[in-house]
Amino acid sequence: MKRYVSLFAATLLASPALADRLPIPAGAPPAFKAECGSCHLAFPPALLSADDWRRVMAGLDKHYGDNASLDDKTRRQLEDFLMHNAGSSWKLGSGGGDPPRLTLTSRFQRKHREITPATWKDKRVGSAANCVACHPRAEAGSFSEHEITMPGGRRHERD
């Protein structure tokens, strides 16, 4: 029985379908969407490790070329939420840089290894942080491969 349980657990972990569903965790404070989802998608907290989120939240005045400072209370509330729902560093890898970027984690890079430089540079994409350019249901936390639509109408094909 124990074996089946661990086998089942292993299947769950390995299943790409699960990794493609990244809804905003229940209990997200309203400030999460308002403060983290205005200039960019409210990124699923699971896409960065707790350590990396701490570093992001420590430097909001220099937030990737923008000043995203928050009052202390909101900053602490959002940091708690992000840390609590962060991804595991061994699965994601580090976001490098200062502040870290979820687009630099090895998991993100591996998932996007088939994307050509021309696609990244496409005006309709503009930035690797612009998830919805190719993942139309990213706002709902869905990053399924079946839904991917590349700029110019080409759908992503698995090779």
Partner: peptide, 8 residues
């Protein structure tokens, strides 16, 4: 409009 950095 469109955010100049993120494209949102």
């Amino acid at each position: 409009g469109r955010h100049a950095i993120t494209g949102k």
